[in-house]
């Protein structure tokens, strides 16, 4: 083939430029967008990208977290600290409030609240009249996500119709929606877990401590490492071991920090970003495969949840 002589961006610079472009398109096209921010690594990358996209101005959108009430307190503290440092507005809406309203009904007390976030999210969208939610989902995470557009249209019930997506051509994004409908925008769609870690390393981003190797009480349950006796910010302690389970104190870290009841850590001694990058390069298991207890129920759980309004 012909030889290349034109200057091009390195892959990380290219991904960064693409994400900034997407964030600015949301700001330019939508009248009331919101950035979903959990305190996790993907949304922390998006915050840095938003700084690069909009500073010295303020972000043209507030931040919002849908809190299941079962999040690691290290992550919640970090979330608040980061929003504070940036001086941007943080909205928190909680699944527990939806439970009080009766719009979320758990099948049993110990059912994971993770999938119920969709209900609380849709309620918050309606409350504030948001026309676009910016999220940190990546296509490399899961096979249904791999199919989703960067600007993904949701109907008034928040549903994704995977068989009938809007064509998305060049970088001419179409973020239009009618009242009540919604766009989900994913600026880091094309990033892999490795890209995220490399970006965190390059940009020197701070992270909640539980991303790094630490000692933790866990039990082995159906082949997964399950953290037990986890204290919440409220003082409540959740994830009690079941009868007969043996508590082991292990050195672990989290690859992803979702709801406590459905996120498992991995065994690791990586206590710096550089070590995490190296570990990511040699891992044999995907991020979700290793850590998400909710995707293993069926071959299509993510697709199903997305059809119901999940991020």
């Amino acid at each position: 083939m012909t030889t290349a002589n034109k200057k091009t961006l390195s892959h990380l610079d290219w991904l960064e430029a693409e994400a900034i472009h997407i964030l600015r398109e949301v700001a330019g096209q939508c009248s009331n967008p919101v950035l979903l921010f959990s305190g996790g690594k993907d949304s922390l990358c998006i915050l840095r990208l938003a700084e690069k996209a909009f500073r010295p101005g303020r972000f043209p959108f507030p931040l919002m977290h849908i809190d299941t009430g079962h999040n690691y307190k290290e992550v919640i503290e970090f979330r608040d600290q980061r929003a504070n440092e940036l001086g941007e507005r943080l909205i928190v809406r909680s699944v527990e409030d939806s439970m009080k309203r009766g719009t979320v009904v758990l099948k049993s007390d110990d059912e994971s609240r993770n999938k119920h976030q969709s209900v609380t999210l849709l309620e918050a969208i309606e409350e504030f009249g948001f026309d676009c939610c910016i999220g940190g989902a990546r296509r490399d995470e899961e096979k249904a996500r791999a199919k989703e557009r960067i600007m993904s249209f949701r109907d008034e019930f928040g549903q994704w119709d995977p068989k009938n997506q809007r064509p998305e051509l060049w970088n001419l994004y179409n973020a239009r929606s009618h009242k009540g409908e919604n766009i989900r925008a994913f600026p880091i769609s094309n990033w892999t877990e490795m890209d995220v870690w490399q970006y965190i390393e390059r940009e020197n981003l701070g992270l909640p401590s539980i991303y790094f190797a630490h000692q933790r009480d866990v039990v082995m349950r159906a082949g997964s490492i399950v953290p037990v006796n986890v204290p919440l910010a409220s003082g409540e302690v959740i994830n009690q071991p079941k009868a007969g389970e043996e508590i082991i104190n292990m050195q672990v870290r989290f690859r992803t920090v979702g709801d406590i009841t459905c996120t498992a850590p991995v065994i690791s001694d990586a206590d710096t970003i550089t070590k995490i990058v190296l570990e990511t390069a040699t891992t044999t298991i995907t991020e979700r495969g290793a850590t998400r207890l909710d995707d293993q129920t069926s071959d299509a759980s993510m697709e199903q949840r997305k059809k119901e309004g999940y991020f």
């Binding site: 296509r139 490399d140 068989k163 094309n190 892999t192």
Partner: peptide, 8 residues
């Protein structure tokens, strides 16, 4: 295949 899938 119905819609585009992206892989890395």
């Amino acid at each position: 295949t119905i819609d585009v899938a992206y892989r890395y």
